[in-house]
Amino acid sequence: MSAFPVSRRTWRRTLRRLPWWLAAAALAVGCLIWIYPFLWMVSASLKTSAEVFTKGLDLLPEAPVWENYERAWVEAQFGKYLLNTVIVTVCTVVVVVARCAMAGYAIARHDFRGRKVVVGVLVATLFVPAGYTIIPLVDLSQQLGLLNSLTGVILATSGAANVAAILLYMGFFRGLPKELAESALIDGAGFATVFFRIMLPLAKPVTATVTVLTFLSTWNAFFLPLVFTFSRPDLRTVSVGMLAFVGENGTDWSGMAAAATISLLPVVALFIALQRHFVEGIAGAVKS
């Protein structure tokens, strides 16, 4: 940005920018308050329980207490919960990207009997929120022997409403020129080759968006993993584990804060690293 005012001209420019800097200062204070709950959480995770109660407002702990993390990781089993969450999230993202890309491609580029029915069912269920179908979903999973297993959580989550992802892929594949597939077909490429070698690599921007959005919703999922792991505490994801933890250890504030930090750190780190994809993925919802 602008350097220090050396000449009169730059001085004037600085003066003109003053209102903006004032606005920035106000926003900076607002943003600090905004993220304060997270700062408080990280700070509490490094304090002794007594310190959290007596000096709750000081953000810097007297001396960092790493034992809180050990307690959360081992005793409260957040190490295990984190692993469960990673397994569920990675598998779900892979399944969702694969199935949505394939379905989107098939619907967008091919005319087949039943196409209208498939599209109609997808669009009709666009607005059905996940929570309202939970009862039959649990019942079906029980009959299939999927309840109380991570496989069940993964399959049910991947099968939940991802219509928007299919629509994104459909829109993208429909926009590609016809000649692309045709020329490959003459070269002797089959249906699957055309898709995996040409179409899917071209769709990378859509794949990035779908990956980020699916990652976010799966990592943060709560209702489904909650009801799927009622009788198997060892299969809890971090969000379910968190509720159970405060239910059992309501007074262990620093342990709670450490567990929350462990659970939130991966997703926050990924957000900072891939910020552009997060923001563009979400903004895409409005533009289309």
């Binding site: 990592w219 971090v238 969000s239 929350a260 659970s263 939130l264 997060f278 979400i282």
Partner: peptide
């Protein structure tokens, strides 16, 4: 934007 990416259930507990 930061709160958006965090897990709602964990934020609720915090």
């Amino acid at each position: 934007f930061l709160p958006v990416v965090t897990t709602t259930a964990i934020v609720g507990v915090v």
